[in-house]
Design a protein around this nucleic acid. Structure first.
Length: 442
RNA sequence: GUGGAUGUAGCUCAGUUGGUUAGAGCACUGGUUUGUGGUACCAGGGGCCGCGGGUUCAAGUCCCGUCUUCCACCCCA
């Protein structure tokens, strides 16, 4: 028979419930930080992504030619769409622009632990703020979002780095800015590949100084304090004013996070540079403390992207958080409760004669907002009571011949099993009474 | 794209050196005599044993291919 396409997902009720839980937390946190939600098309012109990431990106996209001969792709990320939407309206939008989105993204690549071909991603971006205040706001939102799922500082940390600082450091060692991006690609691999392999990758970029350069890069990537960073620059040709000006940004960022009470979540880790070349300044990634998963979230500053995609320059920063790794971690930590979709009221009709009275009561209860269930087929009373159990009904409304003839119903508390016969008019008040948890029925 | 593992009922899995009509638990459906419930007992439905080919008198079991899922690499927005 037909199967789900590889790497795609289906959401049975329980899984759907979980997914909606992530969405509602993301939305709640965004509102908390006063970000506005936006959305865009799932299908975009292929060039939108090729423009940003180069033609090689095509290999990792679900792309095809549509019936009108247009080359299109399922969106692999939200940022280009955001840039396209904001660019033309830049003049009209109040700054800073704080927007977020939640949407399914698609990437044609090999799926494995923590990565599928279709996944949901939460994105939050700030456009129009050039200073580190934007990063403070974004990192705080990122941290609070993870915390809202029950994760704490023992579970995850946000690692903070700075591509600008790296480029400055490399320039001090005589590396041109044009080569710096490729060299940062090697930084991304530090600790993951043996040093001789990394040295070979550096050689075409910097010639026979590769070995010495690699050692310096490793030392730099291990700095965990601003003083340590300052020390690394001591012998370089960098003007100290330039360095100090950048370190002032660092101070502003770190102090901002400290003032928000979030320092314990943040570590300086210059080994993080992010794979993508379009980041221009601070970059950060959230990891579980054991580092047994992929990054939970990642982001940074991308001041040139809007200019590339919309011809309108604007400073911007943002982050993305996927649902796949998040869910893996929450499962591992036992932070996913078993949700039970409980109904408020279950209406039982004892004999088929009560059918229309039951339907009428069901509708009346639903009209005032209760979740109401009943047996569609009018099975035996025993089955109906069992059904009430399984539906988790807190309250039962039982109608038999006696009640029907008297124009009454029996309202029963399923926990205490105490019951009370009331008139049809009193039924709703009585159900309210039980659901509120009041101890006695009368 | 490369390498390793995996596939038996809706789910978790048994299934011996190849040998009759492929099993269990959970779940599901019905029942235990007709107006009161999570237990217990009884019964039942449900499997092209991933798919295709091969070896054999005989394949869930052995061989080849293929697909799927998982893990690692590549990549990672």
């Amino acid at each position: 028979m037909f199967k789900t396409l590889p790497g795609f997902r289906e959401f049975l009720p329980e899984e759907c419930r979980r997914r909606n839980f992530y969405f509602s937390q993301w939305r709640r946190n965004s509102r908390n930080y006063h970000f506005q939600e936006f959305d865009g098309p799932v299908l975009e012109p292929l060039e939108l992504y090729e423009e940003k990431s180069g033609a090689e990106i095509r290999e990792q996209l679900f792309c095809f030619t549509d019936k009108g001969g247009r080359e299109v792709a399922l969106r692999p990320e939200m940022t280009p769409t955001l840039a396209r939407l904001v660019g033309p309206r830049l003049g009209a939008l109040r700054k800073p622009i704080k927007w977020f989105s939640i949407g399914e993204q698609y990437r044609y690549e090999r799926y494995q632990k923590g990565r599928k071909r279709a996944f949901y991603q939460y994105n939050a971006d700030i456009i129009g703020e050039a200073g580190p205040a934007a990063e403070v706001e974004l990192m705080a939102l990122l941290i609070d979002s993870l915390c809202s799922f029950g994760l704490g500082e023992k579970d995850f940390a946000v690692r903070l780095s700075d591509r600008q600082l790296w480029i400055m450091y490399l320039r001090g060692l005589g590396i041109e800015e044009a080569q710096a991006t490729s060299v940062l690609g090697v930084v991304d691999k530090l600790g993951r590949e043996p040093e001789d392999v990394l040295e070979q990758k550096l050689e075409p970029l910097v010639g026979n100084e590769a070995a010495g350069l690699l050692k310096k890069m490793i030392a730099f990537s291990r700095q965990q304090s601003l003083d340590g960073v300052r020390e690394m620059f001591r012998d370089s040709g960098i003007v100290m004013d330039e360095l100090e000006s950048r370190l002032e940004n660092w101070n502003e960022l770190l102090q901002g996070l400290q003032a928000m009470g979030l320092s314990s979540f943040v570590q300086i880790d210059l080994g993080i540079v992010r794979g993508l070349a379009y980041y221009t300044g601070f970059v950060f990634e959230a990891f579980d403390r054991e580092k047994s998963h992929r990054a939970l979230a990642g982001g940074g500053r991308y001041d040139n992207l809007l200019g590339m995609l919309s011809r309108k320059e604007a400073p911007a920063a943002g982050f993305g958080m996927g649902d796949v790794v998040l869910e893996d971690l929450l499962k591992e930590k036992g932070l996913l409760p078993k949700w039970v979709e409980e109904t408020d009221v279950y209406v039982v009709g004892i004999t088929p004669e009560e059918r229309s009275v039951v339907l009428s009561a069901v509708r009346a209860l639903r009209q005032v907002g209760f979740s109401v269930e009943y047996s569609l087929t009018g099975a035996s009373p025993k089955k109906q009571f069992k059904g009430a159990d399984e539906a988790g009904g807190r309250t039962l409304v039982v109608i038999g011949p006696e009640e029907r003839e008297a124009g009454q119903v029996k309202v029963k508390d399923s926990r205490t099993r105490s019951e009370k016969t009331v008139s049809n008019k009193e039924m709703i008040a009585c159900v309210h009474h039980i659901l509120r948890g009041d101890p006695e029925l009368d």
